[in-house]
């Protein structure tokens, strides 16, 4: 009887300790070593990257138009 009580107590204890441990495991999983530049400061640099892409695209198109106009002027 005493033995059974001890065993069930140890089971409950193990269960509780697992419950306590799980969140710490999560915490470890949720902070992987990925803090690169683009992930810093609330990922604000992703927005900067997107804006830079948009303007780069518009400028590339402008250069294309410029070339086209030059062609027409030269002919």
């Amino acid at each position: 009887m005493n033995n059974l009580k001890k065993r069930s107590l140890s089971l409950v204890f193990t269960f509780l300790s697992i419950l306590l441990l799980v969140p710490t495991c999560w915490a470890q999983n949720s902070t992987p070593e990925m803090a690169t530049f683009f992930r810093s400061n609330g990922k604000i640099y992703v927005v900067v990257l997107v804006l830079a892409t948009i303007f780069a695209g518009l400028f590339i198109f402008l250069i294309y138009l410029d070339k086209k106009i030059k062609n027409i002027e030269n002919n």
């Binding site: 400061n41 609330g42 990922k43 604000i44 992703v46 927005v47 997107v50 804006l51 948009i54």
Partner: peptide, 11 residues
């Protein structure tokens, strides 16, 4: 999402 939610205005 964090700050990238601002991409809604540009993307």
């Amino acid at each position: 999402l964090n700050e990238t939610i601002r991409n809604l205005y540009y993307h």
